[in-house]
Design a binder for these strands. Structure first.
Length: 482
RNA sequence: CGGGGCGUAGCGCAGUCCGGUCAGCGCGCUUGAUUUGGGUUCAAGAGGUCCGGAGUUCAAAUCUCCGCGCCCCGACCA
């Protein structure tokens, strides 16, 4: 690893990613294989993600609850597709208190089963519906290959589980929540995700269908960043979630589930980061503004620090998450690089020249060097100016990511072109698609690209499938994915 | 689990082929100066059961055998 800075993205993208995660002190490897330690800076970022999501969940009528970590193994086996999908990834507890357990307990990989079991006891009448519950939890999936934040054995997430009286209501909920994820991703994380439906091959084990938000990472790969599933009556039948309707008839409930995990942190890193390190969207950044005081002589130190404290207080009063870096033992240049690595959106530099003019210097993280600096920002009204700059930065990040995604989204006319794009520039391939599940498998085998989603927003209309040559109005986005 | 690579100071590594002043380097850390508008410089210092075990040998980081662990590539996935 380089002593300073990170491996350039162009040299080795996954190395760059790992470097950023560790050097920005977001997370570290743990002594347990496949697990990571989320460090305070990374955890604060996650807390900000949680707050932004939780607010949206509450606004859409959901409440939080908590269900147990351990699930009887037999529960997993009640839904055939579900157990088939998750069996290879389960961690199972066979002993407790020095005794062999009568029935093994699964460490939850997801909670549809145990929540389904509880819902069957809580739901009696149509008057009990809908049930709209979310939980913030950790889950465990024994993955073969892990990567910090993107795929770890244990990860943090939220999982929403809802039950409804009608299919229409449940489907509406499924779409509402994928929409909430998209709204969060776009407006908080500045990630221009694409909403769509998963192909049958990629859907959640046990779902009727799954919806997703798909993001494009800096290397052109796709990252599934949140999912919302319509479960039909599959889990209701498996767990006997029944209610009496208004006609006094017994019916199975219609359920949904939806989740978004710490993987989102990975999405933020790979959407906005650059060769200087992390770049954080202001709305989620643990530190939105860092103030770096600069002085030459001891006589300059006092007035510079005095102004720095004054500006810090002004920003704090305006509700900005601000940090004054008054460390004595490192140089200003060191601090610049340090905070750039950590992705702080706005840096305010205050030196003797600024004290004289009663002004400060703004340096935005998304633009390197002088280009991103604004000199002579008056101290009077500095909080307002900083706030405006944060709004500008938030918009600029989204705009840049959107332009990148669009520039790396291509159409192809046939399979040869498809392969050429994947071997060349990569990115998203947006095509008409009339292939079968087997066709999809074959393409995955041959190119490693999968259907990321059938986008909801598909104004293309009818066209020719690049693979089968058939006419269809279905549009698919293919990409290599994490 | 299949294929590759690796385990020596907090981190990154050299040394291993050809056993013997090989316990070394860079960064980081500590102390003191110097410097501070883009990662200052210098000096002095602290820090290691060479992954573990067994064996060969006068002598093992180095050779042999057996373990353990990690990383990368594949099948699986939020």
């Amino acid at each position: 690893m380089a002593e300073k800075g990170v491996t350039p993205r162009s040299e080795d993208y996954s190395r760059w990613y790992t470097d950023v995660v560790q050097k920005a002190e977001l997370a570290d490897y743990s002594p347990v294989k496949g697990c990571m330690v989320i460090r305070p800076y990374g955890y604060t970022l996650w807390e900000n993600i949680q707050a932004a999501l939780d607010r949206r969940f509450k606004e859409t009528g959901h409440v939080n609850a908590y269900f147990p970590l351990f699930i009887p193994l037999s529960f997993l086996q009640k839904e055939a597709e579900h157990v088939e999908g998750f069996a290879p990834q389960l961690a199972v507890v066979t002993h407790g208190g020095g005794e062999k357990l009568e029935e093994p307990l699964v460490v939850r990989p997801t909670s549809e089963t145990i929540i389904g079991h509880m819902y069957s006891q809580w739901i009696r009448s149509y008057r009990d519906l809908p049930v709209l519950i979310n939980q913030w939890a950790n889950v465990v999936r024994w993955e073969m290959r892990t990567r910090l934040f993107l795929r770890t054995t244990e990860f943090l997430w939220q999982e929403g589980h809802t039950a409804h009286a009608t299919q229409a209501e449940a489907e509406e909920e499924t779409l509402r929540m994928v929409g909430v994820y998209a709204d969060f991703a776009i407006n908080e994380a500045a990630i221009p995700v694409i909403q769509g439906k998963k192909s049958d091959r990629e859907k959640f084990a046990g779902a009727v269908y799954s919806t997703t938000i798909e993001a494009m990472m800096g290397n052109g790969w796709a990252l599934q960043s949140g999912t919302s599933h319509f479960l039909g009556q599959n889990f209701a039948r498996a767990f006997d979630i029944k209610f009496l309707n208004q006609n006094n008839e017994m019916e199975y409930a219609w359920t949904t589930s939806w989740g978004l995990s710490t993987r989102m942190v990975g999405a933020i890193i790979m959407t906005h980061g650059d060769d200087q390190g992390l770049v954080l969207p202001p709305r989620l950044a643990p530190i939105q503004v860092v103030i770096v005081p600069i002085w030459r002589k001891d006589t300059e130190k006092m007035p510079v620090l005095a102004l720095a404290h004054q500006v810090t207080a002004a920003l704090k009063a305006a509700g900005i998450r601000v940090k004054l870096d008054d460390r004595d033992e490192v140089s200003a240049g060191y601090k610049f690089n340090d905070w750039e690595m950590r992705g702080v959106p706005l840096r305010i530099e205050i030196g003797p020249r600024d004290v004289e003019q009663n002004a400060v210097v703004f340096a935005r993280r998304d633009m390197p060097g002088k280009e991103g600096k604004t000199f002579g920002v008056p101290v009077e009204g500095v909080a307002r100016a900083a706030n405006d700059m944060l709004v500008t930065l938030q918009a600029a990040l989204l705009q840049r990511a959107t332009a990148f995604r669009d520039a790396n989204t291509r159409a192809v006319r046939n399979y040869d072109e498809f392969k050429q794009v994947l071997d060349g520039p990569g990115g998203f391939i947006r095509v008409h698609w009339a292939g079968s599940d087997e066709d999809e498998d074959r393409i995955k085998d041959e190119t490693k690209a999968t259907i990321r989603c059938y986008p909801f927003d598909a104004p293309e209309g009818e066209g020719i499938c690049f693979y089968t040559g058939k006419r269809t109005d279905r549009v698919a986005i293919f990409a290599r994915a994490y």
